[in-house]
Nucleic acid binder design. Structure first.
Lengths: 130, 130
DNA sequence: TAACAGTTTGTTATAATATAACATATGCAA
DNA sequence: TTGCATATGTTATATTATAACAAACTGTTA
């Protein structure tokens, strides 16, 4: 059993905001939302984000420079991530498909290079936007 | 048969630089390299990059904000991209694995959402760095 | 040819994203 | 209670990307 990670004050504030958001949040939009709580500088946001990513609590959506909470229970480390992104409404869902993650985690290319980590982003139209 | 796309002057300059580079290039590093050719502003670079991406001549490595030439002959549109990225030396290779691309292109998730496009980035250590 | 639409270019300015550097404070173990 | 790692606060700056507008070029077609 692994201990639950204790978060610092700023880390918890940032995580709460991301977890309660309905869409991926950008760093500066997080910043504007926490200025009432005494966080004033981008550094404070980015430091919290870095830590939260490191321990797997959130993921960065690279194509959007935005951050989402991890939906996979007890995700301690982010090394295998896959997202579904709607190109119209910008809705983002983390995929949780064991078959897909097994396939990709065990993937090795022609040169025999083995991978420790991957990130996959799918784009299309979600149900509502179709 | 599809006609080869004719590139404008700036588009060709930017493409040449990216094609001759051994690693992904960042927009501003491209800019510094073409100032002798009369290109002075980021807009000119980003416009060329946008067009080159649109027609599939180059791809953006999202995790690095950098650009590489497409290695797949006659790639007209970028809708299925996969890269191998070395975390030590930053070497990036475009994967060209028909099995992988078929698997991902035909992937549909539990909700039945179908995807038009994907981008996959694998991270690890390349042969040299292992 | 002249008028036109579409695209590309050039240019200045600014927005958005992210990190450097340094001083101080806090938690906690030896 | 000292020492160390981590977290915080703060100012400044680097990096990445887009807005907005005017001018030039290209290929139609009236």
């Amino acid at each position: 059993m692994v201990e639950a990670q204790l978060l610092s004050k700023n880390q918890q504030i940032v995580l709460d905001i991301i977890e309660n958001a309905k869409a991926p949040l950008k760093a500066y939009s997080i910043l504007f939302n926490v200025q009432k709580k005494g966080i004033n500088a981008p550094q404070q946001i980015y430091r919290a984000l870095d830590k939260l990513i490191e321990i797997g609590k959130i993921h960065k959506i690279e194509s959007k420079n935005a951050f989402v909470a991890c939906k996979n229970a007890n995700c301690e480390v982010s090394k295998a991530t896959a997202f579904s992104i709607c190109e119209r409404c910008e809705k983002v869902e983390e995929l949780n498909d064991l078959k897909l993650s097994k396939y990709l985690s065990s993937y090795s290319d022609k040169t025999g290079m083995k991978y420790k980590k991957y990130n996959l982003e799918f784009f299309g139209l979600c149900k509502k936007c179709k």
